[in-house]
Every structure is written in structure tokens, then in C-alpha cells.
Nucleic acid binder design. Structure first.
Lengths: 217, 217
DNA sequence: CCAAAATACAGGAAAAATCCTATTAAAAAA
DNA sequence: TTTTTTAATAGGATTTTTCCTGTATTTTGG
């Protein structure tokens, strides 16, 4: 059986120690073989060019410098769709999981996965084309529930600008000035947002904006 | 030389995949041997009891459930000082590094360290008793610079509570109520904080609290 | 073209937030 | 024990914020 060709794997992770340790682990599985690893998406692109053959699987970290997991998986599904991408991360954040799946990842698991399960995942992704763990499945189910569907509040350009400016120490009068609008208009925007976001005051706006990534700290 | 006794290592990390991969890597170094690993501080304590001999080195992750790296290294330096603790983390946050060193870690490195450097670190910590990488050293030097000394704003218990409550949609009157204080006292706290933190209004307080990790979202 | 919805803006007023200057009692330092 | 500091509070004044109702002008779907 050792004569049988092994399935090839590329690792993309900027944590050298993790990457090389993982490589060693995978190489200990008789059916698999790590052919190279890259620190981030860009390096992967280069490596794919140089390498004659494509890997069967790419194990992809999400948090990376230069070109992160999201961009990378997007590029891969657009340009090298025959490669199965498995996302590997420390976060089990719902948004992150869904984003990766949506971008085309064939599986997603946390770095605290048991080595046996990793092997299982690799085998499955080769045989079935995907490996969605219990955690991923339940996250997807959760995201389909009505509350998550109806949500997704849309902001008009001006509303968003106002919301972001409201997260500063500016007074509404000042915000009106920089937006070239009457303070009364700003008054309207605010009321509208209070209703739409179910908050009572400006602090509520700030918290909302932060929670939903509308502003950076 | 293989007859010479190997240096023993314990790994404490809740990321199973990383832990077992790392174990494999380390076991490939002829001078070292991983004798066990634990998911967090508590498991380590138990494992140390059960095990006859202590490991020479503990490789300690910082972000863990149940008993994190800080608590663990503290316990180790207090109770098992002969064990050298090397902290292993993904963050190169200055505060984190310093805290670990202060608690007694004999070294600190990021998970993106090169395997060769890891080996070097292990060898050094056995021979010299510590391994402070360039990064750790520069962080320590940095922390000694005057600006870092003077900073560090201290909050009184009440001030902090108020600050945290101010990051909600509560009105000052309501905050006064839950804190069992007069609104006028709250008025004083606020003014004091405005001055101390150089902010102009409540939004400034919220932003400050967020930036400095005084509240969670 | 027309009614309906959306947009920018006003008036007016109550509620909250902000600012400044004191006072009093308790706690800490000298 | 005096002196100094700190903590909790008041009074009173000004801004800002927040709320509600209403209007003129556009924009839009039928």
C-alpha cells in the first residue's frame, strides 16, 4: 500500500512552529504527505506557480499577515477550484466560520482538534469532497434561523457616516458642520437610528457600531 | 550519546492539534523528550502529581480555559521552582510578555518561531536557565523607558465601576441609583475622569474604556 | 401624471449631560 | 492632635441631547 500515491497537502500558516509540527504529524499518516508550506496567501500563490503539481488539499490558517485566510480561500476557489481548502483557526466565531464556508472552504476546524479527527477530516475531504464537523454544521443551522435572516440592517450612506461620527467626541452641531447638513437633519438621522437599532441614546449607538464592526477602535 | 538521559518536557496547551504536533517535533530532537501534555493549568497540576518525576521544562500556552498561562506560571514558580517555564503564545503584546516574565517564565516566544530556534531555546534554557529572545529583550527594554513608567492610570474602585456603567445606555441618575450614591457624586466622578483621561464627553469615556480593555463588548 | 414614500429641515420643549464653585465629614498624614 | 487630603454632595448655570410634531421638496412606483 505504500506504493500507492499519497494525497498531497499544502499548509498555509504564519506560525512556523505550528506549521512544521503539523507537517510532521501529517507525514506520519501513511496516506498523506505535505509537499510544502507557505506563510500566507501570497506565498502560497508563488509556491503553486513554482510547483509542478497542485496539492489535493490546502490547510489554511485564517489569521495571517499580508493575505489572510478569507482572501486566500476566495482566490483559491476562483482560480484553483480543484484544490480542497480546509480552514484551520483558533476562533469558533460564527461570522468567521460562515464567511469561510461561503468563500468556498470545504471544511473548518479549530486548532484544538484531536489528531485522529484531523486525519478523519483529511480522509473525508478526499473521499466526499468536504468535511463539515458537528460544530460547523450547527453553526450553519443556527445562521439559518429566522432572527439571523431578517436582521442585516441596511444603512444609507449618510446614516452610516453620521453613525461613525457619532462615535467620536464631536457634538451633533459639529457633525452637522462636517457633513454640511442642518443640525436638525442630524437630529432626524439620530432618531431614525435609535428606532432602527433599538437603542436609547448615543452610547447605545457607539456600542452598536463597535459590536457590528462599523468602526475601528 | 543516545544512552544519555534526555531532558524531559511537558506541554500545556488546549489546542490538541498543536500540542501533539509539537510533541512530535520535539521528540525528533535527540536531546529532548515530551513526557506528557495537559490542556490547562489544572490538568498540569494533576499530571505532575501522578507523574513520578518532574519535567525539566514546561512549554506553556497562555490562552487556555480553566486555568490560563498566567495563573499556571505563577503556581509553578511558587510550588515547583525547579521547572523551567517557557511561555508560548500567538500574541506579542507587550503587556502579556512582561506579565509572564514577571510571573517567572524563563522565556517567551511566539508560535511562529522557527523549529530550529525552538530547539535552540530548549538547549539554552537547560544550560543557562533562561532564554530571552531578541523580541523579549527589546520589549523589556522598551518597558523601562520613562514614558511607560509614568503612564498607568489608576482607578479607584468606584471610579472604575462608574466608568463601566457609563458604557451602557443608563442615565447618570440610574447609575447613581445602582451605585447607591447621589447623582452629584456621579457628577464628580465623571468630571474627574474627563480630566484624568483627557476626554470631552461620555462617548470619550466609552472609547477609552474599550481601548483599554476596561469593558468587553 | 399622481399619490405615496423618502429626505432635509424647523419650532419648541423637556430631559440629560456638562461645568464650576463650594461645603462637610471622614480618613490619612504629620 | 492638628493639618491635609479625600470622598461625597449641593447649588446653580449652560450646553447638548433627546423627543414630538409638522412642512416643503424630491423621488418613486403604478
Amino acid at each position: 500500500m505504500s506504493s500507492k500515491k499519497k494525497h498531497t497537502i499544502a499548509i498555509v500558516d504564519d506560525h512556523l512552529l505550528f506549521a512544521s509540527s503539523l507537517e510532521r504529524l501529517i507525514n506520519s499518516f501513511p496516506e498523506f504527505e505535505v509537499i510544502f508550506h507557505a506563510r500566507h496567501g501570497l506565498e502560497l500563490q508563488k509556491a503553486l506557480e513554482q510547483h509542478g503539481s497542485l496539492p489535493d488539499i490546502v490547510l489554511l490558517d485564517i489569521n495571517m499577515p499580508v493575505m489572510d485566510g478569507f482572501e486566500t480561500v476566495k482566490w483559491l476557489t476562483e482560480n484553483k477550484e480543484e484544490i480542497k481548502v480546509l480552514a484551520l483557526s483558533v476562533e469558533d466565531d460564527e461570522k468567521t466560520v460562515l464567511k469561510m464556508i461561503r468563500e468556498g472552504a470545504k471544511g473548518y476546524f479549530l486548532k484544538d482538534i484531536h489528531p485522529d479527527d484531523l486525519k478523519l477530516a483529511l480522509v473525508e475531504v478526499i473521499s466526499k469532497g468536504y468535511y463539515y464537523s458537528e460544530m460547523v454544521t450547527s453553526t450553519m443551522v443556527e445562521s439559518l434561523k429566522p432572527e439571523n435572516k431578517v436582521q442585516k440592517i441596511r444603512f444609507k450612506e449618510n446614516e452610516l457616516t453620521f453613525l461613525q461620527l457619532a462615535c467620536s467626541e464631536m457634538t451633533y452641531k459639529q457633525i452637522a458642520d462636517v457633513m454640511h447638513l442642518s443640525p436638525k437633519t442630524i437630529d432626524g438621522y439620530r432618531q431614525e437610528l435609535f428606532n432602527k437599532l433599538h437603542v436609547k441614546n448615543r452610547v447605545g449607538l457607539v456600542i452598536y457600531a463597535l459590536k457590528n464592526g462599523l468602526i475601528e477602535l
